[in-house]
Design a protein around this nucleic acid. Structure first.
Lengths: 337, 337
DNA sequence: CGCCGTCATGGAAACGTTTACACTGCCCCG
DNA sequence: CGGGGCAGTGTAAACGTTTCCATGACGGCG
């Protein structure tokens, strides 16, 4: 059996109350007894039982993180940001990922009850109904890139729409007119917003242009297939805008196999600016999201909401992404990194 | 206040004992009352309090994961593997990362008491003393790539030594004689083993060869600096073997900036086979570790140890990595991926 | 008809903490 | 010299579960 506070109390010949006080640094305990207790505690290698403690204090020092998936650089960047912010505050992270469907996500949320002080929800397929049904209203939560922005929940969202618009504007500015788009999965908020940005800005900037959308799912494989589709076309677009970097990279490989040079023969751009985007050849022009920063900010927001439950009840923050011009788009890359 | 089991009991006009039995699927409760209880529970949106439950059951359904850092693809691949295995078993993950020094790591382990059923420790700088002082002996643990293999702890280790040997053998086989090495950080078990493999096999395969070791720290930046050092040398090596892929990629960029072609002018190889290794140009010849598999296997081992505390008490498993020949080493790449 | 076994249910203890409250000396002040 | 405050300590309640044990009803069998 593990050593409990009672063992320490017995050994130090005091009550458990005094042990608790001494260990938690309360002032109302003699220096002498405190020293004795601390000595016994370290000697016995006592560590308080987390569950017992948080049962009574109603604090767990833990944040629950709900992710749709852990695959790919995007999500690992997110949790890297979340983790570093959490560590700075002495919080732990209970991660739960890969909730394909709503039922799994719902179960995961329920399982978090009594184990976390707050919830960081990142579910691009979660909608208002799902959240209303599943988010306990006594648990502080922050939503990350979720369809529901505003009113009742605290949220942090990338302005995917404007990011996509900026990219299309850039491509048009470089001189491209026929611009194809590789879309993300259906029913994914981010995916939909980027597509909408593409459609709207193309329509407004290139009157009469026909939007060409290739189906994708955010994974490299689907980008590769889209690239193959493009190769098979007789009249290819001048530029391809993939809804995320991983698909752009997959597409790049397909084009390369088809002996097409990027950007000489065809321009190619992505979205997210995952670390890998700098390393492929040619380096990818993309939309920078500062993924890990976003994770960190989300955690900060949540931590604040936990500390002061009333303040900042439900504010929606939007993050404006930024165009990063490298060479894959055919534009002369600006100086700098 | 959140709804507790008492609320459910009152509403369903039964005792808390019956509610507990009904919800946990025990057989000794009438179908009728069970239905009534279940109805009330869902209607009240009752979710059991995790801390309270695990206080009495002594189970948390959670695994603690101790990582040195969350940065880079290597560790995110690890936790991806761990996570998928955990999910398959219905386990949650309490991650704690970035323990620069032993004191932090020690505190993290203590904080896990009563919150986890087992510990997955990945600390290349952890040694026997540290573990003996800090690992509670009543908590099942699995060590991942840690210096202490064998006797008292259950561990999973990549055979870094043989992996490095295989790489040197390959480079020599391709015809290279002057082979430099970019090392990882000091006091890192994996780093040391890879260096040892390089030294030993170079000495045995190329008698009289001089080992050239450039200091690195596993990060891209240090690989870049090593590349710059190489550029500055008058008599450059024919091949460079970086102790991990990230440094190889950094080095690749430096060489590229110096107008050196890889592999025509100089061969370059890495270690780990992170996903990015396939995507750089030229694709990196490296040593495949199957990082996420390793994480998954480690979790399986731990889960087993938790279920059957006596069996498999402390076995050391070693994973043999595998050479992946792409084009950066100057060898004709074999067919296939 | 009475006894015993079975089964559904309830009461209460237990898990390991924190903390409100009570208690004991002691000092200081009136 | 007595009482009030105060500082240090102990006792016990509370947190929300699970589970042991007791209880009572009921049916079957001798």
């Amino acid at each position: 059996m593990a050593v409990t506070i009672k063992d320490v109390a017995r050994e130090a010949r005091v009550s458990v109350a005094s042990v608790s006080r001494a260990l938690n640094g309360h002032h109302n305990v003699t220096d002498e007894t405190r020293q004795r207790i601390l000595g016994v505690a370290t000697q016995l290698r006592y560590a308080p039982h987390g569950a017992a403690r948080s049962l009574i204090t109603r604090r767990t020092q833990t944040i629950g993180v709900l992710l749709p998936d852990l695959y790919g650089e995007y999500f690992s960047e997110i949790i890297r940001g979340v983790d570093s912010a959490a560590r700075a505050r002495g919080l732990h992270l209970l991660v739960s990922s890969s909730h394909g469907d709503a039922a799994e996500a719902s179960a995961a949320i329920r399982a978090m009850r009594g184990r976390v002080d707050g919830l960081l929800v990142m579910s691009p397929h979660a909608d208002a109904d799902f959240l209303a049904d599943n988010l306990p209203d006594d648990l502080p939560s922050v939503l990350l890139n979720t369809r529901v922005s505003g009113k009742q929940y605290s949220s942090l969202t990338v302005d995917n729409y404007r990011g996509a618009c900026a990219m299309v504007r850039h491509l048009v500015g470089v001189g491209h007119r026929r611009i194809a788009f590789i879309s993300g999965p259906e029913n994914n908020f981010e995916s939909e917003e980027r597509l909408r940005g593409y459609r709207d800005s193309l329509a407004s900037l290139v009157p009469g242009a026909r939007a060409q959308v290739l189906r994708g799912d955010f994974n490299e494989e689907s980008g590769y297939r889209a690239g193959q589709e493009l190769l098979a076309q007789k009249k290819r677009p001048e530029a391809v805008f993939a809804a995320n970097d991983m698909m752009a990279i997959g597409c790049l490989f397909a084009l390369h196999e088809g002996a097409l040079q990027v950007p000489r023969d065809i321009a190619l751009t992505g979205f997210d600016d995952i670390p890998m985007a700098r390393f492929v050849t040619p380096p990818l022009t993309t939309v920078r999201v500062r993924i890990s920063d976003m994770g960190a900010r989300a955690l900060e927001r949540l931590a604040l909401a936990i500390e002061t439950p009333d303040r900042g009840k439900s504010s929606a923050q939007s993050i404006k992404p930024e165009l990063v011009v490298r060479t894959s788009c055919g534009a002369p890359a600006p100086a700098g990194p």
